[in-house]
Amino acid sequence: MEAKDIIKPENLVYQKSRLMSDATFNFCPGCGHGVVVRTIAEVIEEMGIEHDVVGISPVGCSVFLYDFYKFDVVEAAHGRACAVATGIKRVIPEKYVFTYQGDGDLAAIGTAETMHACNRGENIVIVFINNGIYGMTGGQMAPTTLEGMKTTTCPRGRDVKTMGYPLNITPLLAQLDGVHYVTRHSVHTPANVRKLKKALRQAFENQRDKKGTSIVEVVSNCNSGWGLSPKAANDWMVENMFKKYPLGDMKVDGKIVMDMNLPR
């Protein structure tokens, strides 16, 4: 049997979500962003909520989300995604609202907005991409940049004595009473992508059930910023990023489930 005999509509088992537009991603080749963006669309499609969802794309590599989705998206100022989400969710509480934020956005310039939205238990989903670097502006140090890791603004490696320590923010957020669900994933293998999808589904279901804030962190690569090939970047991520940012659930059903002795 030849490929052309298999490639028939009735045999189709996977294609990108119909909620994705035809626009080409602005992401670099091999970037984890694309996988996460697609997976969110799959969850929204499978839940059948595309008419009731508003996404928020703040400044950073996330900023063009509105080009990629076929549902409503609001672009936000750098760091303000959680405030914008609050403003939206409070006036249309029956709709689904999610933010898609990078580490600079969520954990540096937008720390206050993130922290307080979580503390109020805003009934939203926060998707947090942690790749330890500022991708959009060309690879500067992020709050999550690892100790010793080189970026264009710490070219000799992050010196924690003068530049501060890598900020592991999600365990901090997990301790806020308004936060219902915190989990950390990656997208470097198909198995991990499937786990992420389940987590995203859980997060959106939490919102449906009015449980409060759900945070899905994705430890991801930035092969351009890291100066590695896509495959090598993923390997580097597994070896280095996962030590500081181990994968797994941190808070489930409002209860902290992580081992507090893990590196934080």
């Binding site: 996977y14 970037c31 694309g34 996988v35 499937r194």
Partner: peptide, 12 residues
């Protein structure tokens, strides 16, 4: 599933 750009469709 791993394709960042969603350019692969699969038939089976």
């Amino acid at each position: 599933i791993i394709c960042p750009d969603g350019v692969i469709s699969v038939y089976r």
